[in-house]
Computed example of a mutant assay.
Amino acid sequence: MSERPGASADILLVEDNPGDVRLTREAFEEGNISNTLHVVTDGVEALDFLHQRGDFADSPRPDIVLLDLNLPRKSGEEVLTEIRNDDDLSCLPVIILTSSEAEEDIVQSYELQANAYLTKPVDPSEFIETVRRFRAFWLEVVRLPPDEVE
Results as ranks from 00 to 15, higher is better:
residue 17 N to D: 15
residue 117 Y to N: 02
residue 66 L to M: 09
residue 107 V to C: 06
residue 109 S to N: 10
residue 36 T to P: 01
residue 124 P to I: 12
residue 116 A to K: 07
residue 89 L to N: 08
residue 71 L to Q: 03
residue 62 P to N: 07
residue 110 Y to N: 07
residue 49 F to Y: 08
residue 25 R to A: 08
residue 76 G to M: 00
residue 54 G to N: 15
residue 44 V to H: 01
residue 45 E to A: 12
residue 39 V to Y: 06
residue 20 D to G: 05
residue 43 G to E: 03
residue 2 S to M: 08
residue 138 W to I: 04
residue 15 E to Q: 10
residue 28 F to E: 00
residue 106 I to T: 08
residue 116 A to H: 05
residue 92 L to R: 07
residue 140 E to I: 02
residue 67 L to S: 01
residue 123 D to S: 14
residue 127 F to C: 06
residue 82 E to S: 11
residue 49 F to P: 02
residue 23 L to V: 05
residue 123 D to L: 11
residue 33 I to Y: 03
residue 141 V to D: 11
residue 21 V to K: 02
residue 147 D to E: 14
residue 92 L to N: 09
residue 77 E to S: 14
residue 55 D to T: 13
residue 129 E to D: 15
residue 34 S to M: 13
residue 98 T to E: 03
residue 56 F to N: 02
residue 83 I to Y: 03
residue 34 S to Q: 14
residue 83 I to P: 01
residue 107 V to K: 13
residue 35 N to A: 14
residue 34 S to I: 09
residue 44 V to C: 02
residue 126 E to A: 15
residue 14 V to N: 01
residue 4 R to M: 13
residue 85 N to P: 04
residue 69 L to S: 02
residue 41 T to I: 11
residue 136 A to Q: 14
residue 147 D to S: 12
residue 113 Q to E: 14
residue 49 F to Q: 02
residue 84 R to A: 11
residue 48 D to M: 11
residue 99 S to P: 05
residue 133 R to N: 14
residue 122 V to F: 10
residue 109 S to D: 03
residue 27 A to S: 14
residue 4 R to T: 15
residue 13 L to E: 04
residue 102 A to P: 05
residue 85 N to A: 14
residue 94 V to D: 00
residue 101 E to D: 15
residue 38 H to D: 03
residue 19 G to M: 13
residue 147 D to V: 10
residue 114 A to S: 10
residue 18 P to C: 06
residue 93 P to K: 04
residue 133 R to A: 11
residue 36 T to N: 15
residue 96 I to T: 03
residue 60 P to F: 03
residue 99 S to C: 11
residue 5 P to D: 01
residue 120 K to I: 09
residue 6 G to Y: 03
residue 77 E to C: 13
residue 121 P to K: 02
residue 129 E to Y: 06
residue 133 R to C: 11
residue 18 P to W: 08
residue 59 S to H: 10
residue 69 L to A: 06
residue 114 A to R: 02
residue 95 I to C: 08
residue 90 S to G: 07
residue 63 D to V: 05
residue 139 L to E: 01
residue 25 R to T: 11
residue 108 Q to M: 12
residue 99 S to M: 12
residue 121 P to C: 09
residue 104 E to G: 01
residue 134 F to I: 04
residue 50 L to T: 02
residue 33 I to G: 00
residue 65 V to I: 11
residue 117 Y to C: 09
residue 136 A to W: 06
residue 93 P to R: 07
residue 67 L to C: 07
